[in-house]
C-alpha cells in the first residue's frame, strides 16, 4: 500500500478536486448544467493576419451561430404572439406577447415594477449574503474537523431533507409576517448548496498537495489557510452559484404567501385581480432577473477557478 508506483504510465494531469455540483435529492430542473462550454465561441487560432474574405466568413459564422442558439426563444415569442391572436388559446388567460410587453412598460413607467423588483432583490440578496457569511465558515469547520462533522452531520441530514417550503409556516409563526421570516426562508434554502459544496470542497483536496505542504513543515493552521482553502474555492463557488439561483426562485414562494410588495406579491395579486397581462409581466421580470443573476455568478465563478482546467 505504501508503494504502488510500479507503472511508469501514470497520467500527467495534476489531480484536482472533483466537481461536485449535485447531491442525491438535491437535483432540480434548474440544476441543469449551465451552457458554459460554447463550442462556437472558442478562441480562434492566432495566425497570420486574416484576409477580408475569412473575416467575412467569421462574421457570417457568428451570426448564424447566434441565430441557431436564439431560434427556440424566438419561436416561443412568435407562438406567444400569434396563438392568442389566432384563437388557438384563450387570449384572456394568455394575452399576446405585445400586450404583456405593453403592460410591463406601463408598470415600469408607474414605478410599480421598480418597487417590487427592489423589494424582492433586497430580500433575496440579504438571505443570500447571510447564507454566504454564516454557512461557508460552518462548512469549513465541518469539512476540516471530524468531531464537528460527527456531531452535526445527523442533524444536518435531518434538516437537509426537510424542504424549506415545509418550514415556511414555522418561520412565519415564529418570526412573524415581516421581512425577517422571508429572509430567513431564503437563507435556509441557500444554505444547503453552499454547505454541501463547502464540505466536499474541503474534503476532496488532493491528499498529495496536503502531504507536499506538510513536508515543508506547515502546521495545521497554515495548511488550512494556504492549501485547503484555496483548493476548495472553486467547489465552494459552485455552491454559491447554485444558492444564487435558489435565492430568487425560492423567495417568490414566500412573497406569494404573505407580503405587501415584491414580485411574488405582484404576480399573485395580479392573478387575483384578473390583471392577467400584469401577471405575465411579473413572471417575465422574475425570469430575466434570475437569468441575469445567474450569468453574473457564472462569470464570477469562472474568474475564481481559472486554474481548474485539467
Amino acid at each position: 500500500m505504501a508503494d504502488n508506483k510500479g507503472t511508469a504510465l501514470a497520467t500527467e494531469s495534476t489531480p484536482s478536486p472533483e466537481k461536485s455540483e449535485q447531491f442525491p435529492g438535491d437535483v432540480h430542473w434548474y440544476d441543469l448544467p449551465d451552457d458554459d462550454a460554447d463550442p462556437e465561441e472558442e478562441a480562434e487560432p492566432e495566425g497570420p493576419p486574416v484576409s477580408g474574405d475569412t473575416r467575412l466568413r467569421r462574421v457570417i459564422r457568428k451570426v448564424t451561430s447566434l441565430g441557431r442558439r436564439s431560434a427556440a426563444v424566438a419561436l416561443l415569442l412568435v407562438v406567444w404572439e400569434t396563438f392568442p391572436r389566432l384563437g388557438v388559446v384563450d387570449r384572456v388567460f394568455l394575452p399576446p406577447l405585445s400586450e404583456v410587453v405593453g403592460a410591463w412598460y406601463e408598470l415600469a413607467l408607474k414605478g410599480e415594477l421598480g418597487e417590487h423588483v427592489g423589494a424582492s432583490l433586497g430580500r433575496s440578496l440579504a438571505g443570500f449574503a447571510l447564507a454566504i457569511v454564516t454557512v461557508i465558515p460552518l462548512g469549513l469547520l465541518i469539512g476540516w474537523y471530524k468531531p464537528v462533522a460527527d456531531f452535526l452531520t445527523p442533524l444536518l441530514e435531518l434538516f437537509r431533507n426537510t424542504s424549506a417550503v415545509a418550514l415556511l409556516p414555522v418561520f412565519t409563526l415564529i418570526l412573524g409576517l415581516g421581512e425577517t421570516a422571508k429572509i430567513t426562508f431564503v437563507l435556509y434554502a441557500c444554505a444547503w448548496p453552499i454547505l454541501l459544496n463547502t464540505i466536499s470542497g474541503v474534503k476532496t483536496v488532493d491528499a498529495l498537495l496536503i502531504k507536499s505542504a506538510r513536508s515543508m513543515g506547515l502546521g495545521p493552521l497554515r495548511l488550512f489557510q494556504k492549501v485547503i482553502l484555496p483548493a476548495a474555492v472553486p467547489t465552494i463557488f459552485t455552491g454559491v452559484r447554485l444558492a444564487g439561483a435558489y435565492s430568487i426562485l425560492v423567495l417568490l414562494f414566500a412573497e406569494m404567501v404573505g407580503a405587501k410588495a415584491g414580485l411574488g406579491y405582484l404576480i399573485n395579486a395580479a392573478q387575483f385581480n384578473f390583471r392577467i397581462p400584469d401577471m405575465y409581466a411579473g413572471i417575465i421580470t422574475i425570469s430575466l432577473l434570475g437569468l441575469l443573476f445567474n450569468q453574473l455568478l457564472v462569470t464570477l465563478e469562472r474568474r475564481f477557478s481559472t486554474w481548474r482546467i485539467t
Binding site: A10, P15, S212, R214, M216, G217, K226, V227, P230, T310
Partner: peptide
C-alpha cells in the same frame, strides 16, 4: 521528529499547487 525545511521532497506526481503560477509555487516553501 517531524517534517522540516532542512529536507525537501519531490514527488512523482509533482504536487504543484494548481492555483499558483510556477513562480508562486516556488515561493511557497
Amino acid at each position: 521528529n517531524g517534517p522540516g525545511l532542512d529536507r525537501g521532497v519531490v514527488f512523482q506526481q509533482y504536487a504543484l499547487f494548481p492555483w499558483r503560477t510556477a513562480q508562486a509555487n516556488i515561493e511557497f516553501g
